[in-house]
């Protein structure tokens, strides 16, 4: 069996919604509701879902920016709940987060060098020359000229800023990168550049990666394993090849088909959306039964009533649908 770097089991995050003078509990928002998956060493898991499906909150749970309601995070075989303070601190070095908004993630009044130095200082590297050496080395690795060291974030272009963010995640030589839509805010011509960079770095440092994205085209090249999330739950998870060639869940198929593409433009394909018009459900008021039934073309009464369970239809390929 392959060695896993990160495993999460039945992770839940519920926000209580309170109202009124006495903070009466009026509803619960099921933002992340029982998510489990596993990332193997050196591999990339892509977490794909539309905005509001809870994928960003999941990342925040993993890095400890939010407290989880229930569930277990296991990093390199060790349960997070059983870790000592020191071990947790070490963990913070081993897993690094890359944000979507490259400008917002950098302090506006820190020059590049300060931003990159921060993680090293926080983790107690006192030798300034050594810090600078690591920073310059990392900047070269991500394709940034070290002369940018003295620039402020707003003086850089979007692509350069995201490189700074990647560099900041790398200075600690982490084992796991958690990337929250790292390329979706970038210009088209830069997306491919940054994606290539991430793949190169992954190979060089044998990084594992959790790559969050909102569409399936972006993760085609990078992912080994894909997890499809909808309204806080996983609907389908399988290896990348399985998802692209043998997707079973209606929602996955919608995601695969609804993305506008150049090829469809050439072949004059229509929009053939296999989807009922409507919105992604509100996590504070999730539909009964299958979460997707409000928009699913194949849904029947049974889907509205009964909650579907995960079925393994091929080794490693899980689908959560009654129709399979």
């Amino acid at each position: 069996m392959e060695e896993s770097i990160l495993e999460i089991r039945n992770l839940k995050k519920h926000y209580p919604i309170r109202k009124g003078l006495f903070n009466k509990l009026v509803a619960t928002k099921y933002v992340v509701d029982g998510v489990s998956f596993k990332i193997n060493k050196g591999e990339t898991l892509a977490l794909v879902g539309e905005s509001g499906c809870g994928k960003s909150v999941l990342l925040r749970l993993l890095v400890g920016l939010e407290n989880l309601t229930e569930g277990e995070i296991i990093f390199a075989g060790k349960k997070l709940s059983e870790m000592t303070a020191l071990e947790r601190k070490l963990l913070q070095q081993k897993q690094q987060l890359i944000f979507q908004d490259s400008l917002g993630a950098l302090h506006p009044r820190f020059i590049v060098q300060e931003s990159l130095e921060e993680p090293l200082i926080i983790n107690g590297m006192k030798d300034k020359n050594k810090r600078l050496q690591i920073i310059h080395e990392t900047m070269n690795k991500v394709g940034l000229d070290p002369k940018y060291c003295t620039r402020y974030p707003h003086e850089l272009s979007g692509g350069q800023r995201q490189r700074v963010n990647i560099a900041r995640a790398l200075v600690e030589r982490p084992e796991l990168i958690l990337a929250d839509e790292p390329i979706s805010a970038l210009d088209v011509s830069l997306q491919a550049q940054v994606l290539n960079l991430l793949m190169d770095l992954q190979e060089e440092y044998n990084l594992s990666m959790l790559f969050v994205a909102h569409d399936l085209a972006v993760v085609r090249q990078i992912a080994n394993h894909i997890v499809i999330m909808y309204c806080g739950k996983i609907l389908e998870s399988a290896s990348s090849a399985e998802i692209y060639e043998n997707a079973k869940h209606p929602y996955t198929n919608v995601l695969l088909k609804s993305a506008p593409s150049i090829k469809k433009g050439i072949s004059d394909e229509g929009f053939n959306l296999d989807l009922k018009v409507g919105d992604t459900p509100d996590p504070a008021n999730p539909p009964t039964g299958c979460l997707f039934h409000t928009r699913c073309m194949e849904a029947d009464e049974y889907c509205m009533r009964e909650i579907p369970h995960n079925k393994e239809i091929a080794p490693g390929h899980f689908v959560c649908c009654h129709k399979i």
């Binding site: 890095v63 920016l65 601190k89 913070q92 070095q93 690094q96 993630a105 950098l106 921060e118 926080i122």
Partner: peptide, 8 residues
């Protein structure tokens, strides 16, 4: 948030 995640 980034600083918190770094362990500041």
């Amino acid at each position: 948030d980034a600083a918190k995640a770094m362990g500041a």
